[in-house]
Design a protein around this nucleic acid. Structure first.
Length: 576
RNA sequence: GCGGCCGUAGUCUAGCCUGGCCCAGGACGUUGGCCUUCCAAGCCAAUGACCCGGGUUCGAAUCCCGGCGGCCGCACCA
């Protein structure tokens, strides 16, 4: 992509002022891990809180926390152990590594999915494949597992894996959560937590990490009901790159309202569309303009194993182009079905009909004595086959042909009779479907920093949205004089007591202190001058415009609270 | 993982090719002091670095080897 200028500039600022830096620096560093510094940690908390405010609060969504290390069975059930690994081969001469299945696909022009290692090796042998770069012999294939493996317990008897997504913890807890949600659908479960993926070669700082933070929601709903919230967002226009167009080579986004996209089947599920619209809104609130966002649908071959449809929510970054900051997947009933099968637990939801349905159902009444008598040893199997068949089929066959064939034997009217019974159905049991919006926190943090980063002359001004600014206000005595300092410190304490994240700075000239504050995105500076001592007013200075207004000192905490909750704009803080 | 380029204080950098003049120079920052009534002003002082490990040499920031890390390209990113 473009020059590496922006990333360099942001990394430099991040290191210098304490947003983030590479982990394990004193030991030479380790790719794929970053430390968040004091400001980065605060910013992370603000982003998490904004996300909670936006997605979780009041939305029928519950937040939980589950372990990072999971026993093996979890990822056998989830399918990750099968699909989270790639067969690799190595060139014995030059040492280059390749995806074995990709080499085969190239050579054969066909898909080679779900092939065992032996089959792959045999195929490579048969096609006489060699290293595409140097022509050297290829090694036997072996799997590279993207999950971190570990052992659980003192004697290492149990194998565990670090979760590559937080979602499984939610699915596993479904039964209990469904109880806690008092058996009502739809509902969502959110989790903010660490996930780990053993990337082969991580780069790009906070964009591709081996350990990172996900903010995920698994939203459970009845697939037979529409999305009850779609009207809320129906007219939101999304920039979409649907798979249907990508297959024709078109990667340009089309603009469509969510409502239209769902109606036209471009987005195959209403809830999926709902969260995509919310996701766009969320990112816009963090300062990413709409035209720098798009939703890129994954082609069927690119999708994760659990997904029926996936859109990557991408944001345009200067150095790396379009980068995925969230994924929206329609996971259907895949995960719950799998966990139900592997655990043997009932993970279905129950939905009562408005009125119990009384259905008349045909039942087979076998004449067991006669069947035993006639078919001897086979009678048990025959009985089983008979009862397993649809009663309508059995009856129809006997009426039409005079008999029903079971295991090669003819069952006639003398063997069975029929009875119609009334069955009361109070409701329906089904496995809920799931849509999953999943956000990468560190990527969002980087994107937000990039879009906030601006220059005023050669000064950096970080125009962070006020809600997520790590430091909200800084109190500055105009000059270092005992009486101004005392006044400034008392205002600073009042701000802290009011629950604001405020700092005090009296080092260097006033201009230098403004510059320091601008650089880390402090939205408001409060300056105490000579006049403050006379009439008890102070100057508020706005980071982005450098405008100043005069406000009574004792009103500052309340005004700032209004400003940060969004009720007041900057000028509004000056009003009486 | 491969190939190319690269690694000097908190940050940016000089020095490296051509070993000694470098117990590494500068700028900015930071800290303390003086001054200063609104946008990185000035003065004084302090602070702090050759990525790690081996080798060559009388002598290594500099040359060689290995490792680690970074950037770019390839591959990888369910």
């Amino acid at each position: 992509m473009a020059s590496k200028g922006k990333y360099e500039a942001i990394s430099e600022l991040a290191r210098r002022r304490g947003f983030f830096w590479q982990s394990f620096e004193i030991y030479g560093g380790m790719g794929g891990f970053i430390d968040l510094g004091p400001l980065g940690t605060k910013l992370k908390h603000r982003l998490e809180d904004s996300w909670r405010d936006f997605f979780v609060k009041g939305g029928g969504i519950y937040e939980i926390s589950t372990p990072i290390i999971n026993p093996k069975i979890v990822f056998q059930a989830s399918g990750h152990l099968d699909s989270f690994k790639d067969p690799m081969v190595e060139c014995q001469r030059c040492g280059r590594k390749y995806r074995a299945d990709h080499l085969l696909e190239e050579a054969a022009g066909a898909k080679f999915e779900a092939m065992g290692l032996e089959a792959i090796d045999a195929e490579i042998e048969a096609r006489n494949l060699a290293c595409p770069e140097c022509g050297g012999r290829l090694s036997k294939s072996r799997y590279f597992l993207t999950m971190f493996e570990t052992t659980i317990g003192p004697y290492s008897e149990a194998i565990g894996y670090a979760r590559p997504e937080t979602a499984q913890g939610i699915f596993i807890d479904f039964k209990r959560l469904y109880e806690i949600a008092r058996g009502k659908l739809p509902f969502g479960v959110a989790q903010i937590g660490r996930a780990l993926r053993n990337e082969i070669s991580p780069r790009q700082g906070p964009i591709r990490l081996r350990e990172f933070t996900l903010m995920e929601i698994e939203f459970f709903f009845d697939p037979e009901e529409g999305c009850g919230a779609l009207e809320e967002v129906e007219d939101e226009v999304l920039r979409l790159v649907p798979a249907s167009l990508r297959e024709k080579g078109i990667e340009e986004p089309i603009e469509k309202s969510v409502g239209e996209a769902v109606r036209e089947g471009i987005i195959i599920n209403g809830w999926l569309g709902f969260f995509m619209a919310k996701s766009k809104e969320f990112m816009r609130g963090l300062g990413i303009p709409e035209d720098r966002q798009k939703f890129h649908e994954k082609l069927p071959g690119e999708r994760a194993h659990y997904s029926a449809q996936t859109f990557d929510h991408e944001v345009l970054l200067e150095d790396w182009g379009w980068v995925e900051i969230a994924g929206h997947a329609y996971r259907t009933d895949y995960d719950l079905s799998r966990h139900s099968a592997f655990s043997g637990q009932e993970l279905r939801a129950f939905k009562a009909y408005e009125k119990p349905r009384v259905e008349r159902v045909l039942k087979i009444v076998p004449n067991e004595a006669r069947i035993r008598e006639e078919f001897g040893e086979k009678h048990k199997a025959i009985l089983e086959a008979l009862m397993g068949a649809r009663p309508e089929d059995v009856k129809g066959s006997i009426e039409a042909k005079g008999y029903f064939e079971a295991l090669g034997e003819r069952i006639g009217p003398e063997h069975v009779s029929f009875r119609t019974v009334e069955v009361k159905e109070t409701g329906r049991r089904f496995i809920p479907h799931v849509v999953e919006p999943s956000f990468g926190l560190e990527r969002i943090m980087y994107a937000v920093l990039e879009y906030s980063y601006s220059k005023k002359g050669d000064r950096i001004v970080l125009r962070l949205p006020r809600r997520i600014a790590p430091i909200q206000a800084v109190v500055l005595p105009l000059v270092n004089r005992g009486d101004l300092e005392a006044k400034a410190k008392s205002i600073w304490r009042a701000l802290l007591e009011a629950g604001l994240d405020a700092e005090y700075d009296d080092s260097g000239s006033i201009g230098r202190r403004y510059a320091r504050a601008d650089e880390i995105g402090v939205p408001i500076a409060i300056t105490v001058d000579q006049r403050s001592l006379i009439d008890d007013t102070v100057t508020l200075r706005e980071r982005d415009s450098w405008r100043q207004i005069r406000v009574r000192a004792d009103e500052v905490p309340a005004r700032l609270r209004g400003y940060f909750s969004g009720d007041l704009d900057f000028e509004g803080m000056g009003g009486s």
